[in-house]
Each structure stands twice: as C-alpha cells, then as structure tokens.
C-alpha cells in the first residue's frame, strides 16, 4: 500500500510538471509560482474548512519546520538557474543524484527524526543498474 501511494505521487507529479510548465509558458517563472501557490492555498483552505480541521499549536513548533514551503520554491529557482548553464537533461539528472544522495544519507543515519535504516551493501549492484538506466534515459 505504501509503495502504491509513492507511485501515485510520482504519477501526479508527472502531470503537475506538464501543467505547470504550460502555465509558465503563458506567464514567467516567478508569476507562475505565485499563481500555483494561490491556487494551492485556495484548495487546501477549502479542505480545511470543509473538514473542520483546526489550525492550532502554530507557535509551539520550532521555526525551521516551516522552511518546507520556502525550500519547495527555492528548488524551482535553483533548477531554473541551472537550465541555462547546464541544459535541462543534465540539471534534472544532477537534481536526481542530489535527491538519491540526500535520502540515502538521511536513511543511513536516521536524520531529521526518520527511522534509521542502515545501507545494505548488497543493494549496491541494484543501484548501479538503476544508475546506468537513469544515465541512458537522460542522455539520449
């Protein structure tokens, strides 16, 4: 079930990237980011009102936990900076490398409150095959 949810996230992300890209074509990077966040804010506000979810404890939470939204935007800006210098394929491939490295390190040491899952050395071969696949895919 958990694996299915992960796959559903990837499925939606593929459509989201396409649709957001088209919106950016009609506007520009920064304007589209604002529009995307306004639409998102309206949607989640409706969910909260309809579901009668209470917003509380906001001040009891360490401030850095709110950085998620800022990091989400910074990702868009960073990758866009790189597109012009590195091209789309290399930027996306390197971004993917960054994602894999970060999540492997975080799993291995159990950082940021996540469950500690030491890296199983047997998986190195599978990862090698996956990496070769990604390289073939990104650079045709």
């Amino acid at each position: 079930m958990n694996n299915l949810i992960a796959a559903i996230i990837g499925f939606i992300v593929a459509f989201m990237v396409l649709v957001n890209g088209i919106l950016t074509g009609y506007t520009d990077l920064y304007m589209s980011s604002i529009i995307i966040h306004i639409v998102g804010l309206v949607c989640i506000t409706i969910v909260i009102i309809v579901g009668k979810h209470k917003i509380k404890n906001l001040k009891a939470v360490p401030l850095f936990l709110y950085a998620g939204g800022i990091l989400g935007v910074s990702n868009v800006v960073l990758s866009n900076l790189c597109f012009t210098e590195l091209g789309v394929s290399l930027t996306l491939a390197l971004g993917q490398v960054g994602q894999f490295l970060a999540s492997a390190v975080i799993d291995h040491y159990g950082l940021l409150g996540l469950k500690k899952i030491p890296f199983n050395k047997k998986k190195i071969w599978g990862l090698l095959i996956v990496s070769i696949g990604i390289i073939i895919m990104m650079f045709e």
Binding site: F64, C82, G95, F100, I106
Partner: peptide, 17 residues
C-alpha cells in the same frame, strides 16, 4: 553542478520538514 545537486537536496528536505 553543485547548485543542481542542491536543488535535489532541497526537494528531500522540503518533504521531510
């Protein structure tokens, strides 16, 4: 190259935070 890798890192951090 470093910026592109950091952009990937920011996706993971954002998700966990």
């Amino acid at each position: 190259i470093i910026l592109a890798i950091v952009s990937g890192l920011s996706i993971i951090l954002s998700r966990i935070l």
